[in-house]
C-alpha cells in the first residue's frame, strides 16, 4: 500500500511542481498515473521511491515512511526508472545477481526467478552479454527483471511500456494483473491512454502539479458527463 499525504515539492521558489498531493493506492490495485509532459508524474514517482525529498507532507510504503524509515520502505519497492540505460558495462547476469545481492534474494530463489523472468521476456540467451550490446527494449526488460527479482510488494514503474515490443508489453501487463491479483500494489505512469483504460483499476490525472482527477474510468466519464473517447476526456481535463 502506498499513501501519499499532503505532499508538495518546488524546484524553484514560489512555483510548486507538486502541490498538496493526496493519494492512496490500496493493496491489490493497479493504479495508472496520467498527465501531460511536465505535469509532475516523474517528480511524484521520484518522491515515492526516495530519490527526491518532499518539501512538505509524507509518503508511506506499507506503513513505513520513505523519509524517516527509508530502508524498510525501499525494501518493499520494485522500481523501474524511465531510462533503462543502467550499468551498461555489466553483463545481464551480473546485473541481476547484483540486484539480487542488494535486495538479499537467496540463491535458490534468485536462480528460479531469473530463469522465469528472463525466459518470459526472451532475454535469457543474452544474459552473458554486456547490457550495452542490448537494444533499448532489451535494456528495458533487464531493468524490469532486476526490479521484480525480489518479488517486491509494491511495483512502481515510470513509463514501463516505452520501447517494449507488443509481446513483451502484453506479458508485462499480464504480470501486473497477476501481481495485483495476489493482493499487491502496482503504480505506474504512462502516456498511453489505451493501456490505462485496459489495465487500471483506478487512474489519477495530474496537471501542473495538481491532482485533477482520481477514480475509475467509469467515474471519470460520469463526472465529466462526456460520451467521447478517453483521449477527448483526458484533453478536456488537462486543458482546463
Amino acid at each position: 500500500m502506498i499513501e501519499i499525504k499532503n505532499v508538495s515539492k518546488s524546484y524553484v521558489k514560489n512555483k510548486k511542481s507538486i502541490d498538496s498531493l493526496n493519494l492512496e493506492i490500496k493493496d491489490g490495485e493497479i493504479f495508472g498515473f496520467l498527465g501531460p509532459n511536465g505535469a509532475g508524474k516523474t517528480t511524484t514517482i521520484r518522491m515515492i521511491t526516495g530519490i527526491l525529498n518532499a518539501d512538505e507532507g509524507d509518503i508511506l510504503i506499507d506503513g513505513n515512511s520513505i523519509t524517516t524509515n527509508p530502508l524498510e520502505a525501499k525494501k518493499s519497492i520494485g522500481f523501474v526508472p524511465d531510462s533503462p540505460d543502467m550499468f551498461l558495462r555489466l553483463k545481464g547476469i551480473e546485473y541481476l545477481n547484483f540486484m539480487a545481492d542488494v535486495y538479499d534474494v537467496p540463491v535458490e530463489k534468485r536462480k528460479a526467478k531469473i530463469e522465469e523472468l528472463t525466459k518470459k521476456f526472451e532475454i535469457y540467451d543474452d544474459l552473458n552479454s554486456q547490457i550495452q550490446s542490448y537494444s533499448h527494449g532489451m535494456r528495458q526488460k533487464i531493468v524490469i527483471c532486476g526490479a521484480l527479482l525480489s518479488e517486491p510488494k509494491n511495483w512502481i514503474l515510470d513509463e514501463p511500456m516505452t520501447g517494449l515490443d507488443p509481446k513483451s508489453s502484453f506479458d508485462l501487463k499480464e504480470m501486473m494483473k497477476e501481481h495485483a491479483k495476489s493482493g499487491k500494489t502496482v503504480f505506474f505512469s504512462t502516456h498511453v491512454l489505451e493501456v490505462a483504460e485496459k489495465l487500471c483499476d483506478r487512474v489519477g490525472i495530474v496537471n501542473k502539479g495538481k491532482l485533477v482527477f482520481v477514480g475509475t474510468l467509469a467515474q471519470m466519464k460520469e463526472k465529466f458527463k462526456d460520451n467521447g473517447s478517453l483521449e477527448e476526456l483526458f484533453l478536456e481535463i488537462t486543458e482546463e
Binding site: 545481492d101 534468485r110 536462480k111
Partner: peptide
C-alpha cells in the same frame, strides 16, 4: 557475436553485499 549463456549454478552467486558492490 553474443556468447550464448549456459547458466549453471556458478552464475547465481550469493555474495556479500560489499563484495558485490
Amino acid at each position: 557475436k553474443k556468447s550464448k549463456v549456459d547458466l549453471n549454478k556458478n552464475n547465481f552467486n550469493n555474495s556479500k553485499l560489499y563484495k558485490s558492490y
